[in-house]
């Protein structure tokens, strides 16, 4: 726990947090720098990566009420000094976030749509997803990794979808849905997000 009443705890591979409201442990296959803190092991509830390192994170990163979710062969990478608040980061292959990135509340970052678009494949996917069904029969998915540069600010409730690269110093206005790459230093706004100043 750190000072000023903010209950944050070091992310330690394989460890649990004393008095954590969620009865979990941090995954063993994570590589986390010094000073990286979170509020609960709930952060890793949907972390399913079986890679040697499924979560690689620099130091002094804050993961507050954030979901670090991965499929079995996926990795999430974060630089140092980034602040991620109440966001969902869901990787099927790879999501890379730079240093000094601010990800605001309600943000979702995904590298995959997690279901096929084709109606017949989608119908088969619902069968493979039924309670107790064989998940290995799930349909192949289109996966395109996401890369977010350094010093990017991503506003509340924004969405970053598969295949997007956001350049250094860019700003994603709150509520935007980002489908296309964002160049360095540009502000994007809207659904779909386009360069602009915001309302």
């Amino acid at each position: 726990m750190i000072a000023s009443g903010v209950h944050l705890f070091a992310v330690t591979p394989g460890a649990s947090i004393p008095a954590d409201w969620y009865p979990g442990t941090f995954p063993k296959n994570i590589d986390v720098g010094v000073g990286t803190l979170t509020d609960s092991t709930f952060c890793f509830k949907s972390f399913r990566s079986t890679l040697e390192v499924g979560f690689r994170c620099g130091g002094n990163v804050t993961l507050w009420r954030t979901s670090i979710s991965t499929e079995e062969e996926a990795v999430i990478e974060i630089g140092s000094d980034s602040y991620i608040a109440n966001a969902s980061i869901v990787a099927a292959k790879r999501i890379t976030i730079g240093s000094r990135v601010f990800v605001a509340g309600g943000v979702t970052i995904v590298d995959c749509d997690f279901h096929p678009l084709d109606p017949a494949a989608r119908l088969a996917d619902t069968i493979a997803l039924a309670p107790g069904a064989d998940r290995s029969k799930r349909q192949p998915l289109e996966i395109r990794p996401v890369t977010i540069g350094d010093d990017v600010w991503i506003g509340y409730n924004a969405t970053v979808l598969k295949g997007v690269t956001i350049g250094n110093g860019a700003i994603v206005y709150p509520g935007s849905v980002v489908l296309r790459d964002v160049p360095d230093g540009v502000t994007v706004v809207g659904n779909p997000a386009a360069p602009g100043e915001g309302p």
Partner: peptide
């Protein structure tokens, strides 16, 4: 997609009811 909604494409009806029964 979007708000207000707009149609961006139509999918092939590969899951038409008879085909769906086969799946």
């Amino acid at each position: 997609v979007g708000d207000p909604q707009r149609i961006v494409r139509f999918l092939e009806p590969t899951d038409a009811p008879l085909k769906a029964d086969a799946i």
